[in-house]
Nucleic acid binder design. Structure first.
Lengths: 185, 185
DNA sequence: CGCCGCATGTAATTAGTTACATGATTGT
DNA sequence: ACAATCATGTAACTAATTACATGCGGCG
């Protein structure tokens, strides 16, 4: 719903946003997104509008209703905020590090590194384009800026951590030496 | 299961670990932990042993079986690792920042800051006690060390982010000025 | 010709939350 | 007296995953 504040969107677009920019603080599959949109429409918090397209599948654009906006405003003020939850299978796997599985886990770390670098580029592009100097932003954009900064810092951290992790594994002789152009250690 | 590698534990102990040290990469409620332990025992991956206690409730200590260990080893080597997923309601709330709800959200940020500082202290204590110099650690402890470092860096980031966020909100006049003893900006 | 992007879904299952329940001991 | 810690659970529900399904258009 928060993602629909700025502009009405389709389930497909929301899913893509989650896969790219929003993923670091909210995750959902496309099936879940579509199911959730229907539920919210049934609650009258969203209104869906079918759009016919030529040479492309038809789509449904959802927009936040007045009731939805009110419900969202109330939700923001709730006292008992759920704390952040994370599930990171890679870190769990690392708890089981052995001489045998080290190369495999290193590969997984490299995959994470690549994905994180792509994410980071995207976030920094968004920042450059819309949130360059935080002093001039209006209230709502300030909030988005703060979330974005969290994502950027998180991605940077992950990147550095991946490099350090690969370095340590290499130093211990558990994997082949990396071509380590290790930035800001 | 990974948490049972080092030593057999009860559901209660596992829950407490999740609430404190393991929480940053794996979350679960006590109900879920108990349910999961029963499922894993039914699969023969764990063996539970009832322990009678005086002046305390009885408890069930679970330990990893050989089959469990084998299953875990295989799982670590799986190719399709699920990517990390996070749900952070606070950041979603920030997407809805207004002049009205700013003080409330600032309070939520302060709560997160306090919790994060406690977590960080705990992590650094663990590091000091068991993982002081990474070069001397054996393979398995190296893996745990890497996970721990991720947690420490993540907590530091969150701490700094909270300070910056409160500063920015204060600078914009959305909340009262903070008593800002802002460390390493 | 087969894959990718667009675009939306159903069905079955598993994961996870919320509310409720119990009961002794230790500390303030 | 009251709350916290230890310790485990059930029942009802909602959230989320997995697998499957459809169909057109553009690109190599």
């Amino acid at each position: 719903m928060s993602a629909l504040l700025d502009k009405p969107q389709t389930g497909y677009e929301l899913t893509r946003s989650i896969d790219t920019s929003l993923g670091f603080f909210w995750h959902a599959s496309h099936q879940q997104v579509y199911a959730e949109l229907k539920k919210l429409e049934a609650k009258q918090w969203l209104q869906g509008e079918s759009i016919q397209q030529q040479s492309k599948p038809n789509k449904i654009v959802y927009r936040l209703s007045d009731q939805g906006r009110a419900a969202l405003d109330q939700w923001v003020l709730k006292e008992d905020g759920k704390q952040r939850t994370t599930k990171d299978e890679l870190l769990v796997r690392l708890y089981n590090l052995t001489d045998e599985n080290a190369p495999h886990l290193a590969k997984q770390i490299r995959i994470r590194l690549t994905k994180t670098e792509l994410n980071l580029q995207l976030y920094e592009k968004i920042k450059r384009n819309y949130y360059q100097n935080p002093e001039t932003l209006d209230t709502r954009k300030t909030g988005i800026y703060l979330a974005l900064m969290n994502g950027i810092e998180d991605a940077k951290l992950t990147k550095v951590w991946c490099y350090k992790a690969l370095d340590l594994l290499a130093a211990k002789g558990l994997i082949e030496q990396e071509s380590t152009i290790n930035p800001q250690t």
